[in-house]
């Protein structure tokens, strides 16, 4: 009897899709919200609208993000120069610090208050997040809103990719060897990816609403170019260490050097 009821009910579903088409509000100002694992997105991107212009006399900002704590040298995973990243470890280490210059890897540098600048170009070749040996590679991926990211299972076993975003539609998909999944991220948000089968592996996708950003390499270096001359707020985000901010003046056709230091208090 119960079975019959079920079948009837499902028939209702498929026959009648009442579409409550609430208008999709495309909010240009996005309010930060709470999400267990997701950090408040408010912290990381500019909330204002952005106008695309020709940037002829743009300047460049290059720099270095450092982790200054003593601890760095002692207990953290150190990368000697020339060493390829060790992906055989089953986790993405939270703090990856260069033993040469204390440079911090996987920190995202962005300009948070830029109102106009170069064209927002979504990459045609989708950035790839690969699950290799139970590790997401790369561990931190900043992208421009609207970018499609490909997820690849590079291991000969089952993985899943699980996100917990609210604005960007979350997903949790099981993937087998060589399965490739594409997802587009429309809204600025800080999103954590996890694999539930291998609890320790995770990665971050940072969706930003202007094209001025970079992620630091393994010696902590970054470069952001074609910035219209002016004074801007530069911000660094790191999953463990949080945010740092700095005002920087960009001059026409010049390279400005800056440094961020997550200092001792850690």
């Amino acid at each position: 009897m119960i079975f019959v009821v079920f079948m009837r009910d499902y028939n209702l579903y498929t026959k009648f899709m009442i579409n409550l088409t609430k208008p999709i509000l495309i909010l240009s100002v996005i309010v930060g919200f709470l999400c267990g694992d997701t950090q408040s997105s408010k912290d990381i991107y500019a909330g204002d609208t952005y106008t695309e212009i020709e940037v002829a006399e743009g300047g460049t900002v290059v720099g270095n993000v450092k982790y200054g704590g003593e601890l760095a040298a002692l207990s953290l995973n150190l990368y000697a120069d020339m060493q390829v990243p060790d992906t055989s470890k089953p986790t993405s280490e939270k703090l990856i610090v260069s033993s040469i210059n204390n440079g911090l890897k996987n920190a995202v540098v962005s300009i948070t208050n830029i109102k106009q600048g170069k064209k927002k170009t979504v990459p045609l070749i989708h950035p790839l997040v690969d699950q290799q040996k139970n590790t997401f590679v790369p561990g931190t991926l900043p992208i421009l809103a609207g970018t499609t990211v490909d997820f690849l299972n590079g291991d000969e076993e089952l993985h899943n990719i699980h996100t917990r975003s609210t604005k960007n539609q979350p997903f949790n998909l099981g993937t087998t060897y060589k399965q490739r999944i594409s997802r587009t991220f429309e809204y600025p948000e800080v999103i954590k990816l996890t694999c539930d089968i291998h609890k320790k592996s995770y990665a971050w996708i940072i969706v930003l609403d202007n094209p001025y950003f970079d992620v630091t390499d393994r010696n902590g270096y970054f470069e952001i170019c074609d910035i219209p001359p002016g004074t801007y707020k530069f911000q660094v985000w790191h999953e463990e260490l949080g945010n740092l901010e700095k005002e920087v003046t960009v001059h026409p056709k010049e390279i400005t050097n800056i440094e961020f230091n997550y200092a001792q208090n850690w």
Partner: peptide, 8 residues
């Protein structure tokens, strides 16, 4: 944690 196996 229960994933979707949509494409597989």
């Amino acid at each position: 944690p229960m994933p979707s196996f949509a494409k597989e």
